[in-house]
Amino acid sequence: MNAARNTLPVELKGLSTRFGSTWVHRNIDLAVPVGEVVALVGGSGTGKTTLLRQMVGLLRPAEGEVRLFGEPLFAGSRAEQLARRRRFGMLFQQGALFSALNVFANVAFPLREFGVSDEAMLRDLVLLKLAMVELGPEVALRMPAELSGGMIKRVALARALALEPELLLLDEPTAGLDPDRSAGFVRLIRALQKALGLTVVLVTHDLDTLAALATRVAVLSEGRILAFGPLDEIMTVQDPFIERFFHSERSQAALARGRSEI
């Protein structure tokens, strides 16, 4: 058990990204340990979401390598890649629920793909997942178009968790939610992360979310990782970007608010 537990869920080695002739990332190394909540922060256009999309294989880096659970992302046969993909779940910024399917079918989709065919079992599993994200069975037959923004995120989270992943990737989990809902969603993610022992990688602009969730912060600036470590350590790094990002009055207030939620 420990051997499996000690491999790094996500490891980036010498990763570089190029869009056209501009280099977005240059030689990035990052290792995400098991059970940590790592937040990627940086100014807009620094390629945070790009990095997240490379971790799940939606984009391929120009150079370098992405390793998930100790193996290269694209290594092995189709079946092996599929098995690796089932060990992580991703929450997209807009939820990315299948709009032609209702909530129940959305959450059941990955389970059905995996081969769970017993309908009674499937029903209980989906209701359990919905209960985990604090949604009752009454929403199960609604279509995504009939849900509010916060509910869409919850359903999307339930779908991402359907196959019991070890790694969860979140793209702007609180974007588009009002402060109250956003705090509630952060609490939910935190509780689930603790209960299920998840490793989480998230991209966020929101300092409340950052302070409440992240155990480690990776700061992206000028195409490289400027600093990586616990928030308190990051705050002491002398750098103009970190100065502007973390030490302005607004940021301090947001961080204090986030910390009080833990």
Partner: peptide
Amino acid sequence: LADLGDASLP
């Protein structure tokens, strides 16, 4: 699971 009780689909 116990919290879920006998919840069923509408």
